[in-house]
Structures are given as C-alpha cells and as structure tokens.
Design a protein around this nucleic acid. Sequence first.
DNA 1: ACTATCGGGACCTCCCGTTGTT
DNA 2: AACAACGGGAGGTCCCGATAGT
Lengths: 191, 191, 191, 191
Amino acid sequence: MDTKTRFLQASRQLFQRQGYHGTGLNQILELSKAPKGSFYHHFPEGKIQLAAESLELAGAELEALIRNVISHANDPQTAITVFVNKVAKWFKSSDYSAGCPITSVLLDTVPDEQLTTRSCRYVFAQWIGIWSDYFESSGVSTVDAQYLANCLVTGLEGAWIVSRAMQSLDAFKFVERSLISQWQQVNGDRK
Amino acid sequence: MDTKTRFLQASRQLFQRQGYHGTGLNQILELSKAPKGSFYHHFPEGKIQLAAESLELAGAELEALIRNVISHANDPQTAITVFVNKVAKWFKSSDYSAGCPITSVLLDTVPDEQLTTRSCRYVFAQWIGIWSDYFESSGVSTVDAQYLANCLVTGLEGAWIVSRAMQSLDAFKFVERSLISQWQQVNGDRK
Amino acid sequence: MDTKTRFLQASRQLFQRQGYHGTGLNQILELSKAPKGSFYHHFPEGKIQLAAESLELAGAELEALIRNVISHANDPQTAITVFVNKVAKWFKSSDYSAGCPITSVLLDTVPDEQLTTRSCRYVFAQWIGIWSDYFESSGVSTVDAQYLANCLVTGLEGAWIVSRAMQSLDAFKFVERSLISQWQQVNGDRK
Amino acid sequence: MDTKTRFLQASRQLFQRQGYHGTGLNQILELSKAPKGSFYHHFPEGKIQLAAESLELAGAELEALIRNVISHANDPQTAITVFVNKVAKWFKSSDYSAGCPITSVLLDTVPDEQLTTRSCRYVFAQWIGIWSDYFESSGVSTVDAQYLANCLVTGLEGAWIVSRAMQSLDAFKFVERSLISQWQQVNGDRK
DNA sequence: ACTATCGGGACCTCCCGTTGTT
DNA sequence: AACAACGGGAGGTCCCGATAGT
C-alpha cells in the first residue's frame, strides 16, 4: 500500500474516534509508519487537506457498503434492516467508539474551514442520493424517496451518537423500527 | 454572575461550536473574563471537569426548553412540532454552527475519560425520560412512549448533524414529518 | 500539635525526599491538613522562610539523636559506630530516599537566598561542634577533635548520597571503618 | 558545536547549581541558544532524559579529570592530593555553588524516575571503579583498594556539600588528610 | 520522495503569593 | 486564625509547519 493511502487510512481511523483536533499529526504519522517529510509532500495544505481527503475516503467506503447491501437485498425493507444492523454491529465491535467518520470531523472544525465542510456535504449528499434513487427505483415517488433517504441518513447519524453515549445498541433498534414503519406507510400509500 | 458560572457558560458556548479539543482553555478564560488562577480553584480536575459540568448545564437548559414546550402544548403532536421547530430555528440563527452541546463534546473525548461520557449519558437519559413520561401520560403504552422519545432525541441529534453539513434545515423538516407520522400511528393504534 | 508545627514537620519530610523546588506548597498544605490562609499567617515570608525554619527543626532533631547517642555510649568509638549505624538503618528504612534533610534543601536553593544557606551553615556547625566537644572531652587535642568531627559529618553526608545512588548501605560501612580508623589513630597518638 | 551538545552542556551547568526542579526548561533553552521545538526532537522523553544524559556527560568529564590526574601522578598519595585540591579549587572558583553535578540531580528526583537514578549509579560506579583499579594496580589488596576508592568518592561528595554550606574549603582539607592517612595505613600494612 | 533538524507558539497544568471575609 | 477566591506567570509538553540536505 502506498504512502498516501496509509496516511488516509490512518487518519480515517483516528479522526473517527478522536475527532480532528483530538488527533495529533504525530499520532497519524506514527500509525502510518511514515515520516513527517513525506506528509507535506502528499498534502501540501497540511492537516486540513488530509482531513478533507480522508472524509471522502471514508464516505466512499460507506458508500460501497450501501451499494453492496442494496444490490443483495430483495426489497428496500430488507435493505434497510440489513444496513442498519451492519452499521450497528460494526459500531459495537469498536466498543461504541468508532462512530460516523464524517461527523467526528464535521463537528470540531469551524464551518469556514471550507475544505472539510464541503467534503462532509458532498458525502452526505451522495449517501442520500444513492438511497433515494434506490427507493425511487422500487416505485415510490421522488418526494417520498428523498424523505425516506433523509430519514435513513439522519436516523443513522443520531443513532451513532446516542448509542455511543448510552453504550447500547437500543438507538439503532429504534431507528430501524422507525424506518421500516415509514417505508411501509409510504409504500402502502402507493398501493 | 459569579465566576464559576461564567466559566461554565463560556465553555458551553465554545465547546458547542468547536468541540472539546478545538477549544483552548485560553479561549474560555478570555470569554469568561476570568483569570487563569481561579480556574483550578473551581475545577480542580481541570478541563475535563469543566466539560462535564458544562454538559450538565447545557443539558439542563435544553431540558427546561422541553418542559416549557410540553407544558404549553395542547397535545403531543403540537409539542413535537413546536419543539423541533424551535430547535431548528435556533440552530439556523447560529449559522448552522451551534449544534447539540452534548454531541460536540461526546465525540472528541475518548470513552474512558469517564467524566464526560457519564454526563452525556445522564443528559440523554433525562431528555428521553421527560418525553417518554409525557407521551405515556397522554395515553400511549410505556413501550411506545419510550420508542417515540428515543426517536425524537435520536432524530434531533441526526438532524443537527446533517443540517450542519448541508447548511439547510431540511433535515429538521424530515425529522418532524417522521416523528408526527410515528406519533399518529402509535396514537391511532390505541384508539 | 499546633498548626505551625504541622507545617514544619510536613515540609521537613517532603523537602528531605524531593528537595526544595521539587516540593510544592500545595503538597505541604495537603500533608499538613491546613489551609493556605493559615500558612501565610505563620510564615509571612513564604516558602523560603518555611524552609529555613524547617531546616532548623531537622537540625535539632538530628542534634538530639547525636546527644542521645553520646550520652549513652561508653566511649567515642562506640558512639561513632552506633550513630553511623542508626543513621544508615533509618535511611534504609525509608527506601534510600530520605537522606540528609539539610542537603536536599541546600543544593537547590541558590546561595544568595540567604535564609536557607545561613540555616544550613548553622546546623552543620552545631553538629560539628557537638562532636568536637565530645571528642575533646574524651581527651584528644582540640585540633584532632575538630578534624574527627568534620570527618564524621562530611563522611555522613557523602554516605547519604552515594548510598542513595547505589541503593545499598555499603557507603555507610566504609565511612564507619574510616572514622574508627581515624579515631584510633588520633587516640593512639595521644597515648 | 551541535545543538544537542549545547543542550547537554547548558543543562549540566544549570542543574549543577540549581538542581533539577530549580532549573526551568526555558532557562536551559536560553543558555543553549536553541529553540524549544528542537528540544523534543533530541530528547523525546523530555527533561528527565536530558537530565540523565547530562549526568553521564558530567560523569565523563570528571572521569577524564580522574584519569588525567592518575596518569600524571607518581604515586597514589600524590594523585589523591592533587585530585582533591583540583576539585576544591574549582569549587571555590565557582563561589561554592557548582558542586557535584550528580548529587544536585540525584537529590531532587524521586527514585522511581529511573532514568536519572540509573545514570547516577553508573557514574559513581565508574569513578569508584577507576580509583579502585588504580589503587589495586599500585599494590594494595582488592578489598583495600575498594575501600579507599569508596572513601575517596564518598568523602568528596561530603566535602562538596559541607563546603558549600560553610563557604570554606576546610571540608576538603579534612577529607584530604583523612584519605592520605587511610592510604598510608593500608599501604603500610602491606609492607 | 524521504529525512533530520529547526522554529515558535499554544496546550493544559500548577506554581507561589495576595486579598476579602468570617 | 482560617478560608475561599483571585491573580498572573511559568512549568513541561507537544503542536503544526518549514527548511535544509539527501
């Protein structure tokens, strides 16, 4: 694996658990097993650039999961269930500490540091877009599809947070129930 | 206003926008207009203790808002609508930067720094408890009341985040719609 | 025990192990179980005054030990042996960490902080004077008595240090042998 | 002279006069004419590592003096006299303030800060070893050689201390007399 | 593309001493 | 005598970034 990728993966892991300011550059360098000199070669704009690119990497990883779940599921309801449970399981296996890799960076960088905020917006939009297209392709209206997709992403973000504080997966369970219920209602209306 | 309270209010504001590690003690001192020497008199365990107490202050403030909304609303549906919209409006008026005061600290302190994690858990439990009791008192079953309360808090947390990234209140709108829908369903089942 | 004495005893213990600058005022207050306000009542000149008085207390304690040993010993040779061994035993029982209470303060206060340096000089002069008088009273010449007394105090100081570094009482053994040898030679010359 | 050496020499000087805790890092940086940033590059474990390495530098310097004196002296008695007087003269020329560079650090670092204690032990052992070998090579028994070497080092340490308190070289004079006397006795026994 | 060194500033903590009040 | 609160400064550590030279 090349050096730049190691930087990105190391920072993704660390930012996810400790946030942007809570993660030192030296810590990233150590985990990447790469020297400081190389870092500024790959990221001339420094830590903030690393964060932005790291966000997009993290976004792409989760996007891959979404596409994977969608392509294997028979219907949206199953997709929702499988997806929420996968995320929940991963979260638990990290001891409730590796939450949403986007949020942890989003929340402790001031908004005018445009690089990161822009990346966060892009990633969320992608996720919502994929789900929305998927729901729409299964027959619901565009408006409802967007509604469901937004509920899904928003609910997931909320669950990651509440779950971390509570050290329990309950929040994911409630979100799952809520999403299924919404889906059935929207889908039922159509019929 | 006494010195300790000034510390707490200043830190609440700053942590909310910049997170725990993103906020320097000097910044807090400056905003508090308090000298460094006094700080360790009031918070012998240092910054982490300040954060913990600041979390509880923030929790209590939002708790007061919840109680206020509940006591003025004619029915739960109205309460939900009013509450979500108030939160959304406040968030927008801070330029989408003053999100949940709990989350911003929760996410960049490692879980073993128990002081803060414990405070976060306590605050979330309080919020959920209040809503749950309220829903229950309006006639729904305990299980459903807890479900609704959890959806409310979790949805709110998610909305704060997505809304911040998107710089738009859409997420709050979707959460509102989802909550109302859940409420009606649960309430309708009862009838 | 009154407050001032508690301050002196607490500081004696702490300075002995950690030196002057290595011991914080708060640590002394904690061990004394006394508040800061009282401290500056008893020691208006602050920490340096405490150190000076603490040195004299420590000096007096050791002086009492010397007098005690002398008064119970049949002859100087026994007195030397008993004294060196008592000091060595005490030192070992403190895990080689509570060395000479004078030295530990003497060495990390700059000489122009007169208060402490003067106290140190006074204490050493006392110790040497007592031993010297004792030796002289047992029949050796004034010059030889002073020589022996100086060797005793100097040797003891050296032994405390080397013994601490080596974590062994060997240094005290060597000093004892040396002192006995000197005594016999001086005493023998006289006969 | 390179930066790391400047750090070591500056700290050796300052620790010697003011002890470990009495010497601030800023003071060392100022005397080294080196920036703070470089410091943790050369001493990743911080001040305590600097102290440990500084001790070994100081130990080596004095070791060089010992070897020099030994190699130029015709016999041990001369060597002892020359060595003690050199040390005494240097001490006086520092206004009785630059005592043993080892002791000043040894006494105000708690023993479990192993780095420094280990260095002190090493240095003392070196000094004693050199003298011991020298005495043995001049014909005295191993046991007596070790005895003399220990007396020399211990006596020197004691003299530095008493001399500092008294602001007089008397202690060195007494130690010299004592050492010569021991040497003659030991050497005479052999004949 | 990698490395070692530099550079200054900010981090949180704790320092010692002072002041007010009881 | 005791005490809570204040006050500013320095403590050691580590930050992110820059600059040589390899």
